[in-house]
Design a protein around this nucleic acid. Sequence first.
RNA 1: GCGCCUGUAGCUCAAUCGGAUAGAGCAACGGCCUUCUAAGCCGUAGGCUGCAGGUUCGAGUCCUGCCAGGCGCGCCA
Length: 583
Amino acid sequence: MKIEIETLLKQALTHLCAQGVLPINPGSNPTVTRSKDPQHGEYASNLAMTLAKSAGLNPRDMATAIVEALPASEVIDRVEIAGPGFINFFLNPESNTRAVAQILEQGSQFGLSDIGKGKKILIEFVSANPTGPLHVGHGRGAAYGAALADLLAAAGFEVEREYYVNDAGRQMDILAVSVWLRYLELCGESLPFPVNGYRGSYVKQIAEDLFNQQQHQLREPVLEVLADLPKDEIDGGDKEIYIDALIQRARKLLQNRYDIVFNIALNIILDDIKNDLAEFGVHYQYWFSERSLEKKSLACLEKLQQAGYLYEKDGALWFRSSDFGDEKDRVVQRDNGQPTYFTSDIAYHLEKIERGYDRLIDIWGADHHGYIPRVNAAMQAMGLDAGKLDILLVQFAILYRGKEKVSMSTRSGEFVTLRELRHEVGNDAARFFYIMRRSEQHMDFDLELAKSQSNDNPVYYVQYAHARICSVFRQLKEKNFVYLQAQGLKHLDRLTETHETALIKTLGRFPEVIENSALTAEPHQLTYYLRELANAFHSYYNAHQFLVDDADLRNARLALVEACGYVLRNALSIIGVSAPESM
RNA sequence: GCGCCUGUAGCUCAAUCGGAUAGAGCAACGGCCUUCUAAGCCGUAGGCUGCAGGUUCGAGUCCUGCCAGGCGCGCCA
């Protein structure tokens, strides 16, 4: 409908240009928006105000000229000029109710758009280090990424979802050593736990699994483990140096058995994460291993070296990212010869581009924002189209337990896991809650409130609308009425109540909401829409009886209600929330 | 100190490329169940959009400068 009006306006402009009223055709698409106020019709355009200056007319006269040049249309009842020069379009009542017929015809397909034209998008999200279970901070990225992916798919993009597994690097070694030390404790040894180690209880559980599987196969004498190590922080030393020394010691003593510890820790945690996300309704096509990039990383370094973007300083290898807008150069290879995480990431983005996507989306926690310029720099230096990459940031949810802030540190082990949250508030509430706010918005997540299962939770409000619709159709049978959809569609003109036209209008807006929220990467718009839709339905429900004796009216109303059910289900499924048939 | 994000009703948040009278939910107050589920509906009240300038037909939105909060500024990831 919006497009039809835009087309009409375009035709009017062409006409005006031919007449010489307008100097040149502006070319750009006329702006048509939904009116907020019914007094301003269904749709409005600010076209006249934007063109007035170049035409040398005042906006109202410009509007008059445009309106006079508008071709006749069947869908438009009348056009008015209002305010400073808005052109308001009033639709025929039939054009309004035709949304109902369209919804019933398209069913679960209603709202889908082809605006994406099948372009291939890879969306990478969560990608938390497999050094511990997902916590509630990761949950927001999971809910946001999954909703955005489904939204883009609904808008006609070909979407693939990927989790980048950081299974290489120092953090994983720290985890492996933490597990091994806990394992040694289970063997009956007594030794200090490093300040920088992972202290979560899950580390002890992994150690138990390790012990059950390996018994004393991985046991080494404590004296040898601790011999000649530098001081840990607690003894006045440096915790980083200490843990690195401990990692070297573990590798040396365990030799090839080190990989057993490492892999068991990795697999247990990764399986847990996969399981957790699946239960949350978040699914991936790919789990991409950082370790698999080893060769590609070296190749990238070579390429950058040859292009003259690398130099040596202080024994390390640096990338001239500042040549591409980063605030300083970055290390790609440490003085110990190990490539940095950044190097893997260069290779990873090369890999993703090579796989042939039209667009890459990375969703990161906002604390990584300082990392964006160097990734863009690397892509440019590698000769890749950095314009294909969109990095979207999700602000962390600040957790509150009542009024008290909950500290969130994986290392200390004091965190609320995503799983705990899901079990306490339910998947539906968690999914809805997480994406209710704009992703760049800092979010206060009060656990007490979320756990309280109170009616404050808007997800119930929306789900209740759906349950009520299902209930109406159950009642239909009990009251020995019959619903004939075809009859209802024939008599849509009977739907003249204010609540009915309002509901129909809201339903008709759904495709626009999908397109808009997909293109702006703002799934929260969908939750606001759902609340509006549920409100329009509940108001209607309270104001009018659907199961009336007048068969034509009853069928028409039930057609409308059925259509409402479809849209509720379609919208809820995109954000991963269930549509219960009864509550 | 520099960079990114944010600042809107008592609280949590919306507001379409810069559009018309800044909107919801919660909390508060007052109504509505003999009728398809009251997890609902209707109404009242609540605002100098952090502050000060600027841009223009028009600014919560764009620009500049302040103020406040969050995050980042590793040879961690």
